[in-house]
Amino acid sequence: MQIELFIDGEKKIFTTPFVPMLAKRKYLELRAKDESETYSELLADDDAHVSILVDVVFKNQFTIEQVYEGASEEYVLAKLREAVYGSRKETNEEGNNPGE
């Protein structure tokens, strides 16, 4: 699996040889939480989801903040889906393109 992020205005590509099953486990733990959350809980929930990519999949090669600043929400969700379910949604786009 790979992810493309824009860090300091430069496109960087990070790769990992495999996605550990822990990624899906962490995702399912988050989904099992109560649906009635406050805004601060929603922010923490977003961080927890992104941390699956940052901590579990890519072993802290970049930070959560770098993901937020360097990729679109759609791209991050697609990468999370790829990590958790092992498949990519087919689109006409290639990678993470700013301004789209």
Rank of each mutant, 00 (worst) to 15 (best):
Q2C: 05
E4P: 01
E4Y: 05
I7V: 15
D8M: 10
D8T: 13
G9V: 12
E10R: 14
E10W: 01
K11A: 13
K12W: 04
F14Q: 10
T15W: 07
T15R: 14
T15S: 15
T16H: 09
T16I: 03
P17N: 13
V19N: 10
M21L: 12
M21H: 10
M21D: 13
A23M: 08
A23C: 09
R25K: 14
K26C: 03
Y27N: 09
Y27P: 01
R31P: 00
A32C: 03
E37F: 08
E37R: 15
T38F: 02
S40R: 10
L42A: 12
L42D: 12
L42H: 08
A44F: 04
A44T: 13
D46H: 07
D47C: 13
D47W: 10
A48S: 14
V50N: 04
I52K: 03
L53A: 01
L53Y: 05
V54F: 10
V54M: 10
D55Y: 08
D55G: 06
F58C: 04
K59M: 02
K59F: 02
N60T: 09
Q61N: 13
F62D: 04
T63A: 08
I64N: 07
I64P: 02
E65R: 12
E65Q: 14
Q66S: 03
E69G: 08
E69K: 15
E69S: 15
S72E: 08
S72H: 06
Y75I: 09
Y75P: 08
V76I: 15
V76Y: 05
L77A: 11
L77P: 00
A78W: 03
A78S: 13
A78V: 00
A78D: 13
L80A: 04
E82N: 12
E82V: 01
V84F: 12
Y85D: 13
G86A: 07
S87R: 12
R88I: 10
E90Q: 11
E93V: 13
E93W: 11
E94P: 00
E94W: 09
G95K: 05
N97S: 10
P98C: 01
G99P: 02
E100Y: 08
